[in-house]
Design a protein around this nucleic acid. Structure first.
Lengths: 223, 223
DNA sequence: CAAAATTATGAATAAATTTTGAATGTAGAG
DNA sequence: CTCTACATTCAAAATTTATTCATAATTTTG
């Protein structure tokens, strides 16, 4: 989960942004002037900074420069007017992107997401024995050959692969599969998923290569 | 290579500009009145328009307004005199920049290059199998032949093509299509777009060449 | 070893998702 | 205003997946 630092003295904008960003799944930290921004930057180490150009006391550009001395954290600059944008557009301000007020929160969120995605390249491919698990593609490859899994099957294998060797109870596994609470499913359903995954991977419960049954406890990947 | 539409009734200026622009690596289209300008704009989809304010029959401002109804293509307005510039400078004319006659062709070329750079930051043609996706022109070519897509269809295909192989949820896709937050659309609308894109590309959901359905998750381009 | 508990599995059924053709809504062009 | 293109919704059909169930197999325990 990515941390965003909002540096903005207008409390309304601050709160608006916070709301949208939280909704988009980000953790939010706030600062309302340059000094505070630098402090929070040091202590919280955010993954991205949204920085108002016009700040009390210290200019946003100065803040950006200061941060750039130690870090390449992506910075999105908020500018109040188009003229301001024109003023700075030629400058080396250290910002990675600009958004002009008034802005659409949705657009800002999109830009943030893009920049985050660009800066912190993707989810990691998990390798386990001859398996490759690609979360983005929702695909599993076995010795390079794709094994088509359903979404639930994929999620289970993915969950188990987070910690090979660790036992996952059926309840653990259900938590990984179901996003909603109300979806109560019979315990043994998991067994069927496991059976199907094993079948597709050519695995055998008696002498498993991948998925071990742990009697009375659950399942785990065999290390 | 960027296409510039010159709308100018003075043939000397037309030719002068054409020469300079070609030399600077642009493709040049010409029109000598408003009606022709609008036609060429439709058919040629230029990346930038140089528009004379004084035109026979229809005023340049009217042409600009007309174009602005459908497009944000950058427009540079040519004005004959400083007084004229004063007359229009406060108006919302839809122009992005103004150049006063007599002008130095070099300066105009510079301004065009700037505006192009600002408008089309790093436009890259995406190639995917036998498809070519041109973001600037909003066009898709299949084995060199243009496949006419609507704006939304184009945006979806473009979004998917950013990361072939990666699954895009319907929500992801909607984010790519809709810029405003309030524009909430029924989930299944995406399915219909996909259907239409497939139809136009001659793709088949059962054994897709391009767009794969991922049951329970979304869509992705088949790598 | 036998009883009890747990897991494995094939098959049946239920549920969910996708595909599609058609209907409806909407805005712009002529 | 009508015509057209596009966006959107709707609903039925086709497809795929999720879940349950019954029974067999296996493991644990005493």
């Amino acid at each position: 989960m990515k941390k965003i630092l909002i540096v903005e003295d207008d409390e309304n904008i601050q709160n608006l942004l916070e709301m949208y960003l939280r909704k988009a799944g980000f953790e939010v930290i706030k600062a309302c002037n340059g000094a505070e921004a630098l402090n929070k930057f040091e202590s919280e180490k955010p993954h991205l900074i949204v920085l108002d150009l016009m700040l009390p006391l210290v200019d946003g550009i100065e803040v950006a420069k200061e941060i750039r001395k130690n870090s390449n954290v992506p910075i999105i600059m908020l500018t109040a007017k188009v003229e301001e944008y024109d003023r700075i557009k030629g400058l080396e301000t250290g910002a990675d992107d600009y958004v002009t007020k008034p802005f659409s929160p949705k657009e800002l969120v999109l830009r943030i997401q893009n920049l985050i995605k660009r800066t912190y390249p993707d989810e990691k491919i998990i390798k386990f024995k001859d398996l490759e698990i690609h979360p983005g593609e929702m695909r599993v490859y076995q010795s390079g050959k794709e094994i088509p899994l359903t979404v639930k099957e994929f999620k289970i294998l993915f969950a188990l692969a987070q910690k090979p060797g660790t036992v996952f109870s059926r309840e653990n596994i259900m938590d990984a599969i179901y996003t909603e609470y109300d979806d109560v499913v019979f315990d043994r359903t998991i067994d069927v998923y496991i059976k199907n995954i094993r079948k597709k991977l050519g695995d055998n419960p008696k002498s498993p290569k991948y998925i071990e049954s742990v009697y009375g406890a659950g399942y785990r990947l065999k290390k």
